[in-house]
Design a protein around this nucleic acid. Structure first.
Lengths: 366, 366
DNA sequence: TGATAAACTTTACGCGCGTTAAATTATAAT
DNA sequence: ATTATAATTTAACGCGCGTAAAGTTTATCA
């Protein structure tokens, strides 16, 4: 939408300015759209129109403006623009914990989609703290965004404040759903992905137990429920192992919990399905430390599987068998939905939640 | 002229408001500072002063304002504020790749420091693309930030554009230095940390060879040089192994490069020092796949060490021996430096670059 | 060629706030 | 109580741009 100035053009300009001004070595800066429109030979309202939508002006006019843009380095003042537009072109993106590679990937893809759609994304991380999440909402409100893409922390989120926020600003929930909050929810279908994994594990060895931490978000709950259901449907007894921990340091939780579990000797199954990859990574570290071989090969005594296809799960030792969420589809669909919501108002609120299916990624840990 | 019109309209509005308040007890929405100051019983300029610096108004006045703040949630319009302030309270943060946990940690800490100092950070990730890095600079310029904290991509960065940017806006370089660009540089001292590791490795086993990818940034170059120097000082012959790859998927590069290397059979040493942890993680995955035992215990045939203390390196199998950079010190110092730069102008440009020392983290991989 | 629509120019208002100067009031110190 | 000082109020301007209305030019098509 806005045009960047090439370095070459800048240098040419500087040279021309120096020649023109002779003794004054100062390059003339364009201070505002008024000055710039004078250089264009086009009126300010037309230049304004151009910046809002280049195709809305005549081709000949556009050429004049773009020629000037190459010579003079001008961009409309962001704050003046946003103050005067009844609605900004900003989209807020909120993730619960950006240091979690899963969410940094999600954030990256969301950003990309927003930019492609002509919006300006601003990404925030709640850093795992519900208070900080609420603070972000405050900041967002002061940004008057056109809409918000939000992956909430989950169970600990301050739901009433979220709800109030969503009523004010079009918001699409991503990854983790909070019933009745936001215009729509887009995420993955745990009741498809988890049974897929359970079935695979049962088919290839001992039926799995389920390794989880206290459910910080609805996904965790759903995954446990999906596990139990799948096991029962296959005629097996489900076993859920819960470990303590309420931080977002999932690897640490999986590691310390894993040490306890594996030392205890009362393992209900030699196949462990973890509620997410980060937990699995911690558990694998614990197993390694205890000299327990993990994997599908005959000499191994433990199988471990995860969920999410964490970017590093490809490089664990052994590589982690997991479920891959359809990042691309989820992020694209989220942005699309939000934009129609922005453009067509709440009329399109009829949107049903969208759930994408996960893919089984068979590697060597299970 | 138009003020009278505004005032009249406002009176009408207030009257309507009184009616409404008598009817229903709905908390009225404040539209601007004018309205809010009326509710406070304080003049608008004073309220304005309060928001810029609460301690600059009398305690009794502050109480009035804060009492009103509790009743009517009002925040000054972000865009109007920033348009009118000669300089904003924004600080731009740029990292080369936010999906790299090292940088997401750095970004998180930088954000935190900025907030504590009363500034509003905006974080951007170059996503490993120099073009995108330049685009971010354009966006940043339009944000008129008070200053910028920048971890550049490095070798591939468009240096001239960075240089031009830094001349315009106070910028502190973090993590990766570009000679002559920016006001100061703050990072860690590779010529201390790498020798520390080399010495440790030599003392406890076979002197290491150095595993690196094409140096994407000055750090990589310095680490190699530091390795070579340290080896020579200890009377050993340095061996540098370079693997190909120009993306930011370091694990993948380490993995494929590692497979080739370890299959080749021409390994110069059974101890490998990697130029960073992510590369080491990939290499370890390759070793695992080839059935090569990594670690310090007697039955292992390969030692691998990294650099950076990547959040995940604690949970690799085996856990990764590495160098921990002093994140806290680096980020705090960066923000401090930037703020003095902002407040005292370029007068304080005398700042020398600051290098922090790394700590040896002995785990079980080497 | 003339009629009509489309694009443009001119003029002007308003957004919400920072900021300043002068006048006023509150507080502290003598 | 008087004075000096600090804090506040009042009034007003300007930031840079979106936007609207009315008049003018340019393009389009018969």
């Amino acid at each position: 939408m806005y045009h960047s100035i090439t370095l070459r053009a800048e240098n040419l300009f500087l040279r021309a300015e120096k020649l023109k001004q002779g003794w004054l070595m100062v390059a003339q800066k364009i201070r505002n759209m008024e000055e710039f429109s004078a250089k264009c030979g086009v009126s300010r309202p037309t230049v304004s129109k151009y910046f809002n939508e280049p195709s809305s002006v005549r081709a000949s006019t556009r050429q004049k403006i773009e020629a000037a843009l190459e010579q003079y380095d001008f961009r409309p003042n962001l704050y003046a623009v946003n103050q005067n537009r009844r609605i900004t072109k900003n989209i807020g993106i909120v993730v619960p914990y950006v240091a979690d590679p899963f969410f940094s990937e999600v954030a990256r893809k969301l950003e990309q989609c927003c930019i492609e759609a002509g919006f300006s994304p601003s990404t925030f991380s709640s850093h795992g703290s519900p208070d900080h999440e609420v603070e972000i909402l405050e900041i967002l409100r002061s940004m008057r965004p056109a809409g918000v893409l939000m992956a909430p922390i989950g169970r600990a989120s301050h739901k009433k404040k979220l709800e109030a926020f969503c009523k004010e600003i079009p918001t699409v929930l991503v990854d983790s759903n909070l019933e009745g909050i936001g215009a729509t929810f887009i995420g993955s279908n745990n009741f498809q992905s988890v049974p897929l994994m359970v079935e695979y594990l049962c088919r290839t060895g001992e039926p799995p137990c389920f390794f989880e931490m206290p459910p910080v978000n609805p996904n965790a709950n759903k995954r446990r429920a999906a596990y139990t259901q799948a096991m029962e449907e296959l005629g097996h007894t489900p076993h859920v192992i819960r470990v303590e921990g309420d931080t977002w340091e999932f690897e640490e939780i999986g590691y310390t919990g894993g040490l306890k579990l594996l030392n205890g000797g009362e393992l209900p199954s030699r196949t462990i399905l973890c509620s997410n990859d980060r937990l699995a990574i911690g558990l694998m570290a614990a197993a390694y430390e205890l000299g327990i071989k993990v994997g599908i090969s005959p000499e191994c005594s433990l199988r471990i599987a995860g969920h999410d296809d964490h970017p590093f799960s490809r490089y664990t030792c052994p590589s982690l068998t997991t479920i891959s969420q359809d990042y691309e589809a989820i992020t694209e669909r989220s942005v699309d939905t939000l934009i129609t919501l922005i453009e067509h108002g709440k009329a399109s609120k009829i949107h049903e939640d969208t759930l994408y299916e996960g893919r089984l990624i068979m590697r060597s840990s299970a």
